[in-house]
Amino acid sequence: MNDVVLAVEGLSAGYQKNINILADVSFAVRQGEMVGLIGPNGAGKSTLLKTLRGLLEPLSGRVEIEGSETSNLSSREFACEVAYLQQDIEISFGYSAREIVMTGRYPHLHWWEKESDEDIRIADACMAYTGVQDLAERPVHMMSGGQRQRVLLAKVLAQQTPLLFLDEPATGLDIFYQEEIFRFCRELCDRGKTVLMVVHEISLASKFCSRLMLVGGGRIISDGPPSMVMTSENLSHCYGVPVRVVQNPMTGSVEVFTEPPPDAGRRALLLDTILGRGKA
């Protein structure tokens, strides 16, 4: 098939030499797929995303985007292929929403050029799409988490790239904004964008994503449509605690919950000390 937009072969990644957080990972993503990367904290999901985006040097292996190896792309060419939304960005100096969204146009301009009316039109459309056009002149650091995240989403959309990498885009948002982020991505993928997102909202991920990758122990444990990946067995194995997956007959979506770990009884003994009641 020639609609593979992202091909990963034998990729090992990590922050230090000889310490692989991910070892020998291979997969391919087709155009229009909405891929959710799930797994426990510290499993290497963000590391994988950063390495794919070229923000971390891969320890070995290769990454191809639309047929060209990423190590051969210039910074600008790369940024025209993939937009990346990082976790916890701090925006200081009081930049307004519009100024932030405009930085998404950066890779499309030569260093001496200034933004054209067309760039402004694109930025405005992206802000209107994520519903923040009324906040355009407000400083981002004074916004709520939900508003901020939608501004940042508008920014990566303004980059107009075929691929979108999102690192925990919904974390810390209220239920409406969480779903809203997933809905945006669903809609974009239906129109041909390809999205890779690191998410902790497993139920939402299995509802909206077309494909899930379960990352754990330095490799991809399971990769496929949500119904295949989201099994009690897979999740229990990956998270290392008993996990139950139940289909809710009323909503048709999947509910996930964990059971108390075996050492929960021992912890109860500490409660007296913690609550300051065990003096006698």
Partner: peptide, 23 residues
Amino acid sequence: LLMARHLNVLVLGDVEARAVGMP
């Protein structure tokens, strides 16, 4: 003065600037 637009991106930090394609 010529670099003003680039500073707007650079000031957002390393990752953010690299993510939009700045060397």
